[in-house]
């Protein structure tokens, strides 16, 4: 079982390239989404404050 997972991670010895090439774009997308979300929430809060 563990051997299977390790095989999957190593990917015929090219695991490094594959995992990094997935990791960097996905984190970039995710962080952009996160940044935008936080900003939107801040603005929505401000608008609520103003309306009150």
């Amino acid at each position: 079982m563990i051997q299977n997972i390790l095989d999957f991670i190593s990917m015929d010895g090219n695991g490094f390239y594959i995992w990094i090439s997935y990791f960097i774009p996905l984190t970039l997308f995710f962080s952009l989404v996160l940044v935008r979300k936080i900003k939107l929430n801040k603005i929505l809060k401000k608008i609520k404050k103003n309306e009150l």
């Binding site: 015929d12 090219n14 390239y17 090439s21 997935y22």
Partner: peptide, 10 residues
């Protein structure tokens, strides 16, 4: 081999 998997994000 396995490196072709990078294509799916690239």
């Amino acid at each position: 081999k396995e490196t072709v998997r990078i294509m799916y994000i690239h």
